[in-house]
Design a protein around this nucleic acid. Structure first.
Length: 279
DNA sequence: ATCCTATCCTGGCTGC
DNA sequence: TGCAGCCAGGATAGGA
């Protein structure tokens, strides 16, 4: 669902409508979306601030706020499975899945919609503190070959759940884990400490290129959930090699793609391209 | 340290 | 056709 490429796309698309705008109010129709704050306090925290920056960390969209020239907290949005952000005129009817509406001084509002209510629109004074436990960004310099080799070696975990662990590496979810593991020829249940260095390098490169290409294509849409803030589907689903392709031929070798469960997650793989670990 | 299960939610699908 | 039951999925908490 929304993973790094989708979240990056959303951040980029809402940015122009938010930068420099002052927040004039907030309407909360599902309080639990706020992750603990009551609606009243939330409104007080954000109202009167203006937006100085819109960026992404892991699967969080981060809106930096300021009061005059003084930094004044952050809005953090996590889409989880079904969250969406849109900047639209305040009066727009966004349907019954509207959970939070942030009003802006130009007559538009930032709408947070979320069918399944797992997503969050959180206010925090200290974003750094909230991100303390999160692993490196896969598209940053920090995600180096040396770091990745060492990080894989120092754990004894199955590759797929390790890639999904946000404290290990930021932004990877079910789709891009399956796609990158296939591209690297690695079985999702292969133990991380048994991946040879050169193969770790290959996984690192595949992760980066899969994520970059998915960002270029504005993410993946295959059900009704993910749409860009402009209302359009992404197109990376057309590039899927294994995800959601169980029972159909592997695009690399023709063997039928298999679906198994790994760490309680639906997992797609080609058993020829990704041979099972021994033992 | 790692793994497993339940929880949060709803819409969509399956099977009767 | 109607309806109950199951499933997906990101993150987290708590237990083994």
């Amino acid at each position: 669902m929304p993973e790094l490429p989708e979240v990056e796309t959303v951040a980029r698309m809402v940015r122009p409508g938010l930068l420099g705008r002052q927040i004039t109010g907030a309407e909360v129709s599902w309080e639990r979306s706020l992750g603990g704050l009551d609606a009243e306090t939330f409104r007080d925290r954000v109202t009167g601030s203006s937006v100085s920056k819109v960026w992404r960390r892991a699967k969080w969209i981060v809106v930096d706020l300021k009061q005059g020239d003084t930094p004044k907290g952050h809005l953090l949005c996590h889409l989880r499975m079904s969250g969406r952000l849109h900047v639209e005129p305040r009066e727009a009817d966004m349907g019954s899945y509207e959970r939070v509406r942030i009003d802006l001084d130009d007559g538009n509002s930032l709408f947070f919609l979320d069918v399944r209510k797992f997503g969050r629109m959180v206010y925090t004074d200290d974003a750094d503190e909230r991100f303390l436990g999160i692993g490196p960004e896969p598209l940053s310099e920090e995600f180096s070959s040396a770091w990745f080799r060492g990080a894989l070696r120092s754990r004894k975990r199955q590759l797929k759940p390790l890639l999904l662990d946000q404290s290990f590496l930021a932004g990877i979810g079910n789709i891009y884990a399956d796609e990158a593991l296939h591209a690297a020829g690695l079985h999702p249940q292969r133990r991380s400490d048994r991946v040879p260095g050169p193969r770790a390098d290959r996984l690192r490169e595949e992760l980066r290129s899969v994520l970059k290409e998915a960002i270029r294509r504005e993410g993946s849409s295959f059900d009704t959930f993910y749409r860009t803030p402009e209302g359009q589907p992404g197109s990376y689903q057309d590039q899927f090699l294994v995800y959601g392709r169980d029972g159909r031929p592997c695009r690399a070798c023709g063997r039928l793609v298999k679906k198994i469960v790994v760490a309680q997650r639906g997992t797609h793989l080609c058993t020829r391209c990704q041979p099972a670990p021994r033992g």
